[in-house]
Design a protein around this nucleic acid. Structure first.
Lengths: 230, 230
DNA sequence: GTCTATAATCCGATAGAC
DNA sequence: GTCTATCGGATTATAGAC
């Protein structure tokens, strides 16, 4: 119970915790949700499974920390974008960071944004959810400043950023599921990067013509008046 | 070995196969990928697990047929759209069918468009993949005829339809993962339907302003010349 | 055709010896 | 702190009796 003993214990304790967590993250980066088990992790760390429970009381608690690490890694990619000198540059760099993180850490990305149940978790603790909210806020900020700069159409930044997020997220998932074709076969990663950019441009400029917007607005007068107000 | 005996055998054989398949589809509609096991299916059918293997040589083969059924059901929703009298009406009705199918059969939708490995399948046989291609072709047709009618910007119909698909797919996945908020909490299904429509409008008219398109095109001359050609 | 019984693996988690 | 041993559960799949 002397302080020196406690310190030493705490030190080695956290040292092992860190090793286990680092190994768990590696395991996720390699094999993803399906390939993860406490037994495999124990093998990777070099101990037996029961030993892990000395450091993490359950698999779920451990996964929460892995997810927190994943968010931190994700944020590092995104925050590079803040070095851009203009709102547009910041948005572009952040988008680049988003794509880079996803393509370089696909299993981790899918873990973070996949269904918690798929990894055997019931739900997320609020401190982990807060990390997700922070990233959402980051995007709202990027979108809002582009609206203020006259680069994006005026609207609710939160709703507009969800539109952009859904587009990017959907492309990534379809790509990983092998649903995107080019020429005779499945798209390569290089082709996907080009397509991602191209598709993003379509979202910016719109896929419709003025004719279709008129045709739709005629049927929904409230939208027409909104347009007139702008 | 007489023909009558064989007929009878074949008849009851396929009858049981159909019962098993129907029950498997129901099980998927209710519980989805995670809740599916041969034991549960056997219980639902009213037999024991080993009996199933008389009709389907493996779980994977059975899942292939469930997926084929899912595609067929999906197609029924989509093809309603063909009753529309104009290209725009057909596109709108098909989109409505897409959303209806997804929201009414979420587990089935996620099974069809999820990772095959998530359900314990290695990959898809070509006859099942062909069903997916047919649906892709249906969308290309809808997009192409809208381009011809001057309702959508001219472009490669396949690539444009992927942009639209990714947007819709991404929204659905984020909604099901509980990532879409409105007000204080998670979006309700009704709120999501409104948002889906609203977000689709944004994709039609574009989220960017002319200013941002100019800013980007100045840096990529080949795009500027494309625009000039139109 | 259907059953019981069983094989061979995996999993998460715990108890208790050292 | 780590181990062995084990519990209790899941899974796919097969063998052989009826």
């Amino acid at each position: 119970m002397n302080s020196e003993g406690d310190w030493f214990t705490l030190f080695t304790m956290s040292e092992q915790r860190e090793r286990i967590l680092a190994e768990a993250c590696d395991l996720f980066l390699r094999d993803g949700t399906d390939g993860f088990s406490m037994r495999k992790l124990a093998r990777a760390v070099g101990v037996t499974a029961p030993a892990l429970y000395k450091y993490y009381e359950s698999k779920e608690r451990l996964l929460h920390e892995v997810m927190a690490q994943g968010y931190e890694r994700f944020a590092q990619y995104l925050y590079r974008g803040l070095m851009g000198g203009t709102p547009l540059k910041r948005l572009e760099l952040a988008s680049q960071g988003y794509l880079d993180f996803a393509l370089e850490n696909p299993r981790l990305y899918e873990f973070i944004y996949g269904a918690p149940e798929a990894a055997g978790m019931t739900d997320l603790p609020e401190d982990v959810e807060a990390l997700g909210c922070a990233i959402g806020q980051f995007w709202h900020d990027r979108v809002r400043e582009c609206m203020d700069a006259g680069l994006l159409r005026v609207g609710d930044p939160e709703r507009v950023s969800v539109t952009m997020w859904a587009h990017a997220h959907g492309l990534l998932i379809l790509f990983w599921r092998g649903r995107l074709m080019e020429g005779s076969g499945v798209m390569s990663e290089e082709q996907f990067r080009v397509f991602f950019q191209e598709s993003g441009m379509r979202l910016l400029e719109g896929v419709g013509t003025p004719a279709v917007l008129d045709a739709i607005r005629i049927r929904s007068p409230e939208r027409a008046s909104e347009a007139a107000a702008v």
